[in-house]
Amino acid sequence: MSLINTEIKPFKASAFKNGAFVDVTDADLKGKWSVVFFYPADFTFVCPTELEDLADNYAEFQKLGVEIYSVSTDTHFCHKAWHDSSPAIKKIQYTMVGDPTGVISRNFEVMIEDVGLADRGTFVVDPDGKIQIVEITAGGIGRDAKELLRKVKAAQYVASHPGEVCPAKWKEGEKTLAPSLDLVGKI
């Protein structure tokens, strides 16, 4: 079953953010746009490149009113140690959520049960707590924060412009489509 348009399930977790340990719940994701960004593990190879890319683009997400939550099955203590020891991870200002029990990873259906790690899953959650975008890639394939920004802008546009949709490669300010009988077979 697809997670698109489903409400996120309840969770409570400990996280590391800006030098402090904080609690995060599903309620924190409601009332604003959020990106939940799962990755397999701290102290690995592709993961720091992705998280650094998000960190380098975090200000752009913030301008859109979007909060980022990176999640792995590591603990919040491990996230702090990684933050303190890696130049790439030291850039992170968003919330790094620990999911050692795997509850959040299972809620979003990205848990790789036989190894206890999360797949590379990206979820965009709207202010109502409903999942609007799902992207899951194989472990060796890194994601692109700028493409994620484009998708978030499209999701926000569609949410605020009922009756319009964003075509392939749509970028902010470009023409959208208004689905109708007149367009059938014309595109």
Rank of each mutant, 00 (worst) to 15 (best):
K80Q: 15
V152Q: 00
Q132Y: 01
I104E: 02
P100A: 05
F45L: 09
G129D: 10
W170T: 04
Q156H: 11
V125F: 10
A55I: 00
I68L: 15
E52D: 13
I104G: 02
C166T: 15
E67G: 09
A159Q: 13
F43E: 13
Y58N: 14
V152N: 06
N57H: 15
W82A: 00
Y69L: 09
V134T: 14
V125P: 01
I104C: 09
G140Q: 13
C78K: 12
Y157H: 14
L181T: 13
L177T: 08
Y39N: 01
S86L: 10
H79M: 07
P87V: 11
K90N: 14
C47P: 05
V103M: 08
P48C: 01
C166G: 12
D56F: 01
G121A: 08
A155L: 05
A41F: 10
I112Q: 12
I133S: 09
F108W: 04
I136N: 06
V66L: 07
K63W: 03
A159T: 04
E172T: 07
Y58I: 08
I104M: 10
E67I: 03
A154L: 08
R120H: 02
R120F: 01
T101I: 04
S105I: 03
F123K: 05
K153F: 09
Y39W: 12
A178R: 14
P179L: 06
R106T: 13
P48V: 00
H79Y: 12
E135R: 15
F61R: 04
V66R: 00
Y58T: 13
D42L: 04
A154H: 00
A154G: 15
A88D: 13
I136E: 02
A81R: 13
Y157W: 10
A138F: 02
G98L: 08
Y157E: 09
P100G: 01
Q156V: 10
N57S: 08
K146R: 15
S160R: 12
Y39S: 03
D126R: 04
E172K: 14
K175C: 10
G116M: 02
E172H: 03
I68M: 09
E174P: 03
V71W: 01
Y39F: 15
R106S: 15
T176G: 11
P179Q: 11
V71H: 03
G173I: 03
D56A: 12
L51C: 02
V165G: 12
W82Y: 09
M96V: 07
F77S: 12
F108R: 02
S160I: 06
G98D: 01
L54Y: 13
Q132E: 01
